[in-house]
Design a protein around this nucleic acid. Structure first.
Lengths: 114, 114
DNA sequence: CTGCATCCCCACGGATACTG
DNA sequence: CAGTATCCGTGGGGATGCAG
């Protein structure tokens, strides 16, 4: 399809997926270990956490560091590139907060009208 | 789950879905008829176009006007609220464009390293 | 503690055909 | 032209168990 090679599509897919933004938001506060993120985002499964981390790492937004302790621990943190996405994300979040009431009102109007 | 009542989640889901942003982008240039949007976004099916329009309308981002011509024609246009989402969207698009090369490089590095 | 593999279900979305 | 209804395949993602 025509959108396959669109760079915006990649970003939208990542932003829009269920967990990426929550993880990025968590890491925005500083580096976290695997299990720390899992505690902060309680509903995510190990499987999806691993997979989302890998996607974020592959895109260069998150860096992964293994500490050869026993048992091993792994730390994830935002890369410089990852830091830069926080601002566009924040713009979106602020829009959502600002528009929340309007959207809710529109929905109720739409639902009662139908 | 804990994120169900999060207003940001609603927005992210809409932004992240396959067609909404393309439609919003089309309507940003002005009102369009159903088939006009379908021509601009070639890969979308009638089914998904209708459904996405309804979602956008329900959230108050898009307004739908039926002209009782024969055969009937329907026009879609951004609402004032819909206009306001263009800017956050644009911030995201500009980030995507700016970071495209970095992301691509990170992916290639990641893929060859594995 | 971290992460991979397997199984499995169900919602998303495409194709097609039909109505006003 | 615009929208609806039905069918159906694919894959996202949850649960669980095993490995390093």
């Amino acid at each position: 399809m025509s959108a396959v090679d669109c760079p915006v599509r990649d970003v939208l897919d990542r932003i829009g997926d269920k967990w990426s933004t929550l993880i990025l938001g968590t890491l925005a506060a500083g580096p976290h270990r695997f299990s720390a993120v899992q505690r902060t985002v309680p509903d995510i499964s190990k499987r999806m956490l691993t997979q989302t981390f890998r996607d974020l790492e592959r895109d260069g937004l998150v860096a992964r560091t293994v500490f050869p302790t026993k048992p091993p621990s792994v730390e994830y943190r935002l890369t410089p590139l990852g830091q830069t996405i926080l601002e566009p994300l924040d713009v979106l979040v602020r829009w959502a907060d600002r528009s929340q009431a309007d959207i809710e009102a529109a929905r109720q109007a739409f639902d009662t009208a139908s």
